[in-house]
Write a protein that binds this DNA or RNA. Structure first.
Lengths: 209, 209
DNA sequence: GCGATTTGACAACAAGCGTTGGCCAACGAA
DNA sequence: TTCGTTGGCCAACGCTTGTTGTCAAATCGC
């Protein structure tokens, strides 16, 4: 499903790798539509027809380009509580995005707004790679899943505004300052009281009629 | 610059309005590229050539479709402090997006990831419509601009995850719960100590060499 | 060494795009 | 009515896209 069934010799491995690297860069920088196969092929120093031969179609090439393993499971502290998790998560996020070696994330987000396939992939990444470590730390918190999703909204928003859109003054802000800011925001999402603290009384739970 | 110089009679006003409405919907739902002029024209019940005649080009049609006035200046409380601002802002945001009458915002965000023109428009909206009321409330806080931008990252992230991508469990969450969550997140961004509170000492200010 | 297979480039295809020009009907002013 | 203008549809252009077929050269198995 992920890789095409066709098999090729090792001789073409460098070419296929070059195509994949060029595809990742183009998809991340230009989005799915503007990243034409001809442009990708030119970056890889090869003819456009070879891209199709090796990867079947543009959609399959994109699928191959968007494989990712965030590998956050080990970096997250085991059971030191949400405060420590917020710190570690904020740091891991900033380190990864500041390093610039995150073409796959960029490519997925940039494409998701216009191509539904990428949305499913993001959902899967959240479910399989982002949510579990947070759930592990949050323990039996009934709102753990929602908290994890809220954390995602914050990191998503920062990533898009700073790295994808380049909006000021977020784009020109100091990374360390930003790291503290989202660390505190994440902590808020992970630790704040979920049940309403406002004037209105608790709505009594209603069984579906 | 916004409207083409050509003038038309009132007789074609309904047609032009229908085109604009269809364009907004299509741009918001499909993005710039997949929202073809032919599709927009079909939605408006008119020929594609008329779209060009009335609006000059697809780019100009998009420009005309993306005019917006958030009108948040008055809804925001004048000088009751950041806590109250967070409350009001969170409520205004959720109310606007839950009502579904926000095609322009959707269209701008969805297009910004792939078309630089929309980015400039978002930057302008932030500078002219979002930032000023926040600055007014924050007073002489030296980090007021950054705080405003951080608030934007949070609202952006939530809007994208819930309304544009439909990621679970954010998309299926209760609006009231969500409103409380982003209200607290906004409050964090507006009120938290900006200078580092960690173990490392304050870096001494250095004059550029 | 030789034959089979793979690599790669070139050209070309069909489809879809934004856009243009031409033509007719409907309308408004005289 | 009559004439000039506007609204609208149709057909077509030029262009780019993903994709396919063909064919020479390079490579590998024997």
């Amino acid at each position: 499903m992920t890789m095409p069934d066709r098999r090729f010799t090792d001789r073409s491995a460098p070419a296929r790798a070059a195509i994949l690297a060029a595809a990742r860069s183009r998809f991340a920088a230009d989005g799915y539509d503007k990243a034409t196969i001809r442009a990708i092929a030119a970056d890889a120093g090869i003819d456009a027809s070879m891209v199709i031969r090796y990867y079947g179609s543009k959609a399959e090439l994109f699928e191959a380009s968007s494989a990712i393993d965030l590998a956050l499971r080990e970096t997250v502290p085991t059971h030191e509580g949400p405060e420590r998790l917020a710190e570690e998560y904020g740091h891991a996020f900033m380190a990864r995005w500041e390093s610039g070696t995150n073409e796959v994330e960029q490519l997925l987000i940039r494409t998701a707004l216009t191509h539904q396939d990428a949305v499913g992939q993001i959902q899967r990444i959240f479910d399989e790679q982002i949510k579990p470590p947070i759930l592990a730390v949050l323990g039996d918190d009934p709102d753990a899943e929602l908290r994890a999703a809220l954390v995602m909204t914050q990191t998503f928003g920062l990533a898009i505004c700073r790295y994808l859109l380049g909006l000021d003054p977020i784009a020109s802000a100091d990374p360390a300052t930003l790291e503290r800011a989202i660390r505190d925001s994440i902590r808020t999402h992970l630790t704040r009281s979920m049940r309403d603290d406002a004037d209105e009384p608790l709505p009594e739970p209603v069984t579906e009629p």
